[in-house]
Structures are given as structure tokens and as C-alpha cells.
């Protein structure tokens, strides 16, 4: 029973990890931009959440909405003012740009908020639990998983049903040709980066509610994001979701067996998957289905 509970909790955590990866994977899928500053933006979003949650009506968890809006605007500005200027065949300038941004952001947060560990207090909810098939599970972790699933599904539907979603997919396929259809791909990119940031920001705030963070947490978050995206298979939507699950479940089972292991076994599983299937789980699935 204890193992089932551990796996369930791993799935809850995996939903959050998937959400952390979604922003990075979405930005990469649409623009081929690897945003190295993503981890530090996730932490910055947690600080914004920390600042805004005392004013949030109804329930502190709703703070994800204003933080997402702020992050969306920051993402648009980031793309419009900085990243769009360095786009081209060469990926290096854009990686250097976001890397530099990450350093500035991290040190700015240390200077502004200090290096202490912080957490967003959701009050009583932290201790609420519920019984499910004989398992005792936490309300907050389950709610986080539900939010992750809703966001994945919403993004998927929006991309496939809406006009702007269609333009984003077309731009991801061929950013030169969309211009011949009258589309300013720079605007599309700005919206895509705004969305990527908003998704990451939600993940950052939820992470800060489940645990704690410091201005230095960004590199851990970025590593998780990279692993989720790579395990899932670059740009594969539901592959990323699965990638988050794999990391979350592995980590919690490993912690039960070896309480001091931290994230190590998650990283090991990531390496094993990378060696066995360089295209991630989605790639392995495609091979199994189409190779025959």
C-alpha cells in the first residue's frame, strides 16, 4: 500500500514536472529557441507569486492567474525586445543571450530578496488529505496534477482549434512561408514566448506552494525542464507529460529506498532513456508503431 501511495504521489509530482518542461518544450517546438533562462524565470515567477498572494481573493492558490498574466507580458516583451533580434540560423547568440539573462536575473533576485529559503503559504490546504481506493493522498498535490492536466489539454485544444493556434503551428512548421500568407512571424513568436512563460510561471508558483525555493533554485528547475523535454522527445506534447511522470515516480520511489538520494535517480533514469532511445519516449513509440 505504501508503494501505491508513493507511485500516486510520484504521479502528482510528475504532473508538476511536466508543467515545468512544457514551457521550455513549447518555446523550442515553435521557435527552436532554447531558453536557458527558463529556470530562473520560474523562480522569478515564484517571487512574484510571493508578492501577490496576500492580495489574492478567495484562495491563495488563485494567485497563479495574475502571475500567469504578468509572465505572459514579460515573455512577450522578452521575445519582442531581445530574442527576436538574435534569431537566425545560428543558435549560439540566442543561447548566450538567455544565459546572460539567467545570470542577471538570479543575481538580481539575490540582491533584492536575499538568499533565504521562501515558500508560498496556501494555509490549511497544505495539510488536507483525502482517501482514494484506500490510499491517503494530499489535496494540494492532487490539485496541482489536475491543474497540469487542464493546462496541457487547454494548450493542445487551443493550438488545434483556434485561429491563432493554427498560425502558431504553421509558423513552427515554416516561419518563412507564413510571411507569404501575411503573417508577421515575430508577433507569433512573441505570443508563443508569452505562453511559454505563463505556463512556466504557473509551474513555478505551484512548486513554491508544494515546497520551498531560493534565488538559486533556477538551475535545478531548468535541469528538470530539460529532462522532461528530452525524455518526452523534443516537441512531443504528451511525450513531455509522460516524461514528467517518469521523473516524478522515479524520484519518489528512490527517496523511499534511499532517503538521501534527492534527484539523483531521476537523472540516472534520464540517462538510461537517453542512451536506449535518443529520440525520447515519443521516438521509441514511433519506432515501435511504424517500423513493424
Amino acid at each position: 500500500m505504501i508503494w501505491l501511495e508513493t507511485i500516486a504521489n510520484g504521479i502528482f509530482l510528475g504532473g508538476l514536472y511536466a508543467l515545468i518542461g512544457l514551457g521550455l518544450g513549447f518555446a523550442f517546438g515553435v521557435m527552436r529557441v532554447v531558453n536557458v533562462a527558463q529556470g530562473d524565470f520560474i523562480v522569478a515567477a515564484a517571487f512574484i507569486g510571493l508578492f501577490l498572494y496576500p492580495w489574492t481573493p478567495v484562495h491563495p492558490i488563485l494567485v497563479i492567474i495574475p502571475v500567469a498574466v504578468v509572465a505572459f507580458l514579460i515573455g512577450m516583451a522578452l521575445q519582442w525586445l531581445l530574442v527576436n533580434r538574435v534569431l537566425g540560423h545560428d543558435q549560439i547568440p540566442q543561447i548566450l543571450l538567455t544565459f546572460g539573462l539567467a545570470i542577471v536575473l538570479r543575481n538580481g533576485m539575490v540582491a533584492g530578496f536575499g538568499a533565504n529559503s521562501q515558500s508560498i503559504d496556501v494555509g490549511e490546504m497544505r495539510f488536507w488529505g483525502f482517501d482514494f481506493l484506500g490510499l491517503r493522498l494530499g489535496v494540494l498535490p492532487a490539485l496541482v496534477l489536475v491543474i497540469a492536466i487542464v493546462l496541457f489539454a487547454a494548450l493542445h485544444l487551443w493550438l488545434h482549434r483556434s485561429r491563432l493556434g493554427r498560425l502558431i503551428r504553421a509558423t513552427a512548421d515554416d516561419y518563412q512561408i507564413v510571411q507569404l500568407q501575411g503573417v508577421n512571424y515575430r508577433k507569433v513568436y512573441a505570443v508563443a514566448m508569452g505562453l511559454a512563460m505563463a505556463l512556466s510561471a504557473v509551474a513555478g508558483v505551484l512548486l513554491a506552494m508544494r515546497g520551498s525555493f531560493t534565488p538559486y533554485s533556477g538551475s535545478d528547475r531548468l535541469l528538470i525542464a530539460f529532462e522532461v523535454v528530452v525524455i518526452g522527445g523534443l516537441g512531443s506534447f504528451w511525450g513531455m507529460f509522460l516524461g514528467g511522470m517518469v521523473l516524478g515516480v522515479t524520484q519518489l520511489i528512490a527517496l523511499k529506498l534511499d532517503p538521501t538520494s534527492g534527484l539523483m535517480y531521476g537523472h540516472i533514469v534520464f540517462f538510461i532513456i537517453l542512451i536506449l532511445s535518443p529520440n525520447g519516449l515519443a521516438g521509441a513509440f514511433r519506432n515501435a508503431v511504424f517500423r513493424k
Binding site: 485561429r163 493554427r166 498560425l167 518563412q176 500568407q181
Partner: peptide, 20 residues
């Protein structure tokens, strides 16, 4: 140079962006 992952109809609909 089609948008290879989009459907035929979605490919055509992208042209509406020109608003002509």
C-alpha cells in the same frame, strides 16, 4: 513548402491572415 503537420484545410486557412 506546405505546413507539413497541418491539415489541408488548416494550410489553406492560414492564408486568411492576410485579411484580404
Amino acid at each position: 513548402r506546405l505546413f507539413g503537420t497541418l491539415t489541408v484545410e488548416d494550410n489553406l486557412m492560414v492564408g486568411l491572415a492576410a485579411e484580404r
